[in-house]
């Protein structure tokens, strides 16, 4: 079954025929986490680095922010049978888009905030396809953890 994931949402599956899918990432980042021994996959579509900018929104939609969303993702993965120490992470998205004041690059700041959380909590990013200007779509197969990233013209394995 295909499980579509919108902005600020996350889904976790341990069913071998499921595929987690998220579309048009832009400066958002898809964090794809996988426990290869227990075949548990989780994908979250993060829009902003830090919930401090809007704590109301973080309550309603914790997955919108890296700091509130990532703990939820890993919590749910453990509930579905993942072992934290087996989990490996791949990132896609984080295109270079400036904030409203044209001050900093939101995509890069998202990617860095996600890596900060992961490093501090013992999860490693083993592959990433971030930055640049394309709008990426990600498909993530639960059976083997294979990830395909695509944009308008092409697709490639992550």
């Amino acid at each position: 079954m295909r499980l579509d994931i919108g902005i600020g949402e996350w889904k976790v599956s341990n069913k071998a025929d499921d595929e987690l899918k998220t579309y048009a990432l832009g400066s958002c980042v898809a964090v794809c986490a996988y426990d290869p021994s227990n075949h548990v996959a989780g994908l979250i579509h993060i829009a902003l680095p830090d919930s401090k900018v809007n704590s109301e929104k973080a309550k309603k939609l914790p997955g919108y922010f890296a700091d509130t969303g990532l703990p939820k993702l890993f919590e749910d993965m453990v509930k579905k049978g993942a072992d934290k120490k087996n989990i490996k992470v791949k990132l896609a998205g984080g295109s270079s888009i400036m904030d409203q004041n044209r001050h900093f690059d939101i995509g890069r700041r998202n990617t860095i905030a996600i890596k900060r959380y992961l490093w501090k909590n013992g999860f490693g990013v083993i592959k990433e396809d971030t930055g640049g200007n394309s709008s990426r779509t990600v498909g993530f197969k639960v059976a083997d953890g294979a990830i395909v990233v695509s944009n308008a013209g092409s697709k490639w394995q992550l």
Binding site: H103, F104, D105, R108, R109, I112, A113, K115, R116, W119
Partner: peptide, 13 residues
């Protein structure tokens, strides 16, 4: 700072 300390750096205005 980005890769090692996970802090985003920009030029100060």
């Amino acid at each position: 700072l980005g890769e090692m300390a996970f802090i985003d750096v920009i030029e100060a205005e």
